[in-house]
Design a protein around this nucleic acid. Structure first.
Lengths: 137, 137
DNA sequence: AATGTTTATGCAACCGGGTTGCAAAGTTAA
DNA sequence: TTAACTTTGCAACCCGGTTGCATAAACATT
């Protein structure tokens, strides 16, 4: 039981059940964002709806964020510690058409976008598609 | 049979069948992007797979482009006349969480994004979520 | 016009991600 | 210990997307 991960659950007001600890652990180990079906396959016998609800809870409490990379399955990745998922907190995502991985480009904040008058901004989803450095040999 | 729409099919090398003319007509009438299920409901008795394949063909030939706005259903909108769907041609999209419409903000080009070294860019999907001017009374 | 070839359409069936209702198990508070 | 609430597991479902296959339509060639 990783004390640090447990803390992250606590500070986000999520009761640290065994299941949730495991899920957070798996999520933390990923270098790229992961989908519900992928998460499912990391466990021998975990129930899909439980994992589903766990992800939803995590997302609601802003422990993780979701990325719609256009593959048909939502991807999830852990937020940075102080993230509130406000526009200033958001970053660009990159989907590699070769290895099919979705990266959080945490160093690249979403650019400012000037909406037409009377349009209110709430969030921005940016997915850049192309070939990642690993596949670009 | 609108001569202009017919021309747009021709110049994109799409044989102007009755079905395709109708679909293009409907698409052209929309002020916001439309999904396959929505398109389906605009016809009394059209086959889903035919509409599906029509959209695919249109998209392939760059007569229309698709937007993944995160609602679970791809949305489609007609491209501007000279569009090649290259990054320079792309614009920002806006999804209104109130009226659930997806707008093409054709006046707002996608901003330039500096990827990490060795990352190759192919396309960019930007969806801004918020409240649109119509809903913002 | 008759033939063969290609293309488009319609139908049915399927797939996969997401989602929900409900009952059982577990946790917490009184 | 009991009652109230939360989490989990199971089953079932929904819906958008997709495909195989047979028919129909369009096109080209003789």
């Amino acid at each position: 039981m990783d004390k640090q991960l447990d803390n992250r659950l606590q500070t986000r007001n999520i009761k640290p059940t065994a299941m949730r600890q495991l899920v957070l652990q798996v999520l933390s180990e990923q270098k790229t964002a992961i989908s519900l079906p992928e998460l499912e396959s990391k466990f021998e016998n975990a129930d899909r709806s439980t994992l589903y609800r766990t992800l939803k809870t995590f997302e609601e409490r802003k422990l993780i964020h979701s990325i719609d990379d256009g593959t048909g399955a939502l991807k999830y990745a852990v937020c940075h510690e102080k993230c509130d998922c406000h526009p200033e907190d958001l970053h660009v995502h990159f989907y590699c058409i070769k290895c099919k991985n979705t990266y959080c480009l945490t160093d690249i904040p979403v650019p400012e976008i000037n909406l037409p008058v009377d349009f209110d901004l709430e969030s921005i989803n940016i997915v850049v598609k192309g070939v990642c450095a690993n596949c670009n040999i």
